[in-house]
């Protein structure tokens, strides 16, 4: 409640608990039935929420990219044996998906989308941002990638082609951005701060930490 309300102001919602939205009630109903039937474990559902809210996110991908920039042998493994190395590091896909790493080069900039729904490399980036799930991005990324990138502030020179990767339930993509020249010589933990989420989707480029 806003602080300037007079003490005598009274609102209906004070009398009883705030009624959740219609879809929120439907989720509660569905969850209640699934628990009653023994199909789900509420603690496991909470653990999944906690995992995606607090533990899995772009910092995991950023760590991998920073290590790849620092260690050519690791980079080769990350690109050529992605599932193996991610599984070894504990970032394997839990939905049976494969992750493919696509490397940006001076000749080719990679951009990831899921035109079908919102397939995304959860184990290394967490859940996707709203724009990734929007109709606008899902349709326009394929049709006019250069324009979409410009809207994200990324201007791709005409001589650099753009390759758009359409994710599926089975295959998710992670972009390995080019290391900015200004970041050469930094150690892995410093480098990780240069790698933002969008750079690993292809809608951004690595940035100095102060600017991100």
């Amino acid at each position: 409640m806003l602080s300037f309300f007079m003490p005598h102001d009274h609102h209906d919602e004070d009398a009883h608990s705030l009624l959740p939205s219609e879809p929120a009630l439907r989720v509660k109903a569905l969850e209640t039935i699934l628990v009653q039937k023994g199909l789900i474990d509420p603690a496991a559902v909470d653990a999944i929420i906690d995992r995606y809210e607090h533990h899995i996110g772009p910092q995991i991908g950023a760590g991998l990219i920073a290590r790849a920039w620092s260690d050519p042998a690791f980079k080769a493994q990350l690109v050529n044996n992605t599932d193996g190395i991610l599984s070894d590091l504990g970032f394997g896909g839990r939905q049976g998906e494969h992750i493919v790493v696509v490397e940006n080069t001076p000749d080719c900039h990679n951009l990831v989308v899921c035109t079908l729904c919102s397939c995304y490399p959860w184990p290394v980036l967490g859940v996707p941002p709203a724009w990734y799930k929007s109709d606008a991005y899902r349709s326009r990324a394929v049709r006019e990638p250069r324009q979409v990138l410009a809207e994200f502030g990324v201007i791709i020179p005409p001589e650099q082609k753009i390759r758009v990767w359409d994710s599926t339930a089975e295959i998710r993509y992670l972009v390995l951005p080019m290391q900015p020249a200004q970041s050469l010589g930094l150690d892995e933990s410093e480098l990780a701060l240069w790698v933002n989420r969008n750079a690993m989707i292809g809608t951004g480029l690595p940035q100095p930490p102060a600017e991100t």
Partner: peptide, 17 residues
């Protein structure tokens, strides 16, 4: 990660199932 608690709940239900 999620704009509303019920987004997180329904997401997690599908993942768990």
């Amino acid at each position: 990660a999620f704009d509303a608690p019920w987004h997180a709940e329904v997401f997690a239900l599908a993942v768990h199932l």
